[in-house]
């Protein structure tokens, strides 16, 4: 996906950092084991948060082992594979494949065409593993295309299909442990990712004549001007998302990774919003 959901480094304790890295490396290695070497590069921070949340909600036993990595020969602590991690890897492949297809439909250069080709086979395998999740994502993109075609006004409406998809996929993968708070958290997480990505890409979208929810509401002004003139409204739009996430989070019970997820929900998301609203350029990829 995108990599906007990250922990806030200044508030991250050493043990939480190791746990976070273990999940990141574990997801990456597991993707490699299931789908081959190349698709490993689809691993991203947003999915790590989802993995943490899923393991915690199901109270799935976390197995740690030391594994070397092609990028770094030093052995690192990673989370071992298992039923749930396999599903998360597959879900990530599905999401990345659909994003690549979406990019190709939008006529976005060779990057997405290559990605689509590389992910074609892994996608078939992932689809066989999670046919229902595939159907949910497919349905979401149909709705999204309709919204783009109609140029639907309103940030809430535009972000709804993506947000609802995150919530539906979670409900499907986690079954009955997914209560209204967990689903509310995922809904707002999806909304956060969608709107952050949209605001981040606004200038590029306008230049290429693509749909952007912010352009529908505020017109085709530059990202910088948009932030200067409508800062208060933008702050409201993003604050409600982060505060709702915190509200859902506070209403939940945790078994494994409370402080790490608290760091992400309380500080990571807010910090990203601050960065996004303050910068006039595209955000650099995060480094943890």
């Amino acid at each position: 996906m995108y990599g906007y959901v990250v922990p806030h480094k200044e508030n991250l304790s050493q043990q939480d950092f190791i746990l976070y890295r273990s999940f990141y490396c574990g997801t990456c290695i597991n993707t490699g084991r299931l789908f081959g070497l190349l698709p490993r590069f689809t691993t991203n921070y947003d999915m790590v948060f989802f993995a943490l949340l899923a393991f915690d909600a199901k109270n799935e036993p976390v197995e740690f082992k030391e594994t070397p990595c092609v990028l770094n020969p030093k052995k690192k602590l990673t989370v071992g594979g298992g039923g749930l991690l396999d599903k998360i890897s597959a879900l990530n492949i599905l999401l990345c494949y659909y994003k690549a297809v979406d990019g190709v439909v939008d006529g976005e250069g060779t990057k997405y065409r290559v990605l689509k080709k590389v992910l074609k086979k892994p996608y078939e395998k992932a689809k066989a593993m999670l046919p229902e999740a595939d159907a949910i994502i497919d349905k979401m993109y149909v709705e999204l295309r309709q919204i783009e075609k109609d140029a639907t006004a309103g940030l809430d409406r535009a972000a709804h299909p993506f947000a609802q998809m995150m919530s539906d996929v979670t409900a499907h993968l986690l079954g009955e442990v997914a209560d209204e708070n967990l689903l509310g958290l995922m809904y707002n997480l999806g909304k956060f990712v969608y709107l952050t990505d949209a605001l981040d890409d606004k200038d590029e979208d306008d230049k290429k004549g693509r749909f952007n929810p912010f352009s529908v509401v505020y017109g085709k002004v530059s990202g910088k001007e948009l932030r200067e003139k409508n800062l208060e409204e933008l702050q409201f739009a993003f604050a409600v998302i982060s505060n709702r996430m915190a509200e859902c989070f506070n209403n939940m019970k945790f078994n494994q990774s409370y402080t790490l997820m608290q760091n992400i929900v309380y500080f990571g998301v807010r910090n990203k919003i601050k960065e996004l609203l303050a910068s006039s350029k595209k955000l650099p990829p995060p480094k943890i």
């Binding site: 604050a239 915190a246 608290q262």
Partner: peptide, 29 residues
Amino acid sequence: VKVMGNPNTNPRNMGAPPVEDPMMTGNCL
């Protein structure tokens, strides 16, 4: 506007107060 839409609302004050359960402070490591 002042609570839900405020970027400076203390996240701890949203919804139920955070649990001060020793099991829930720290991670499984």
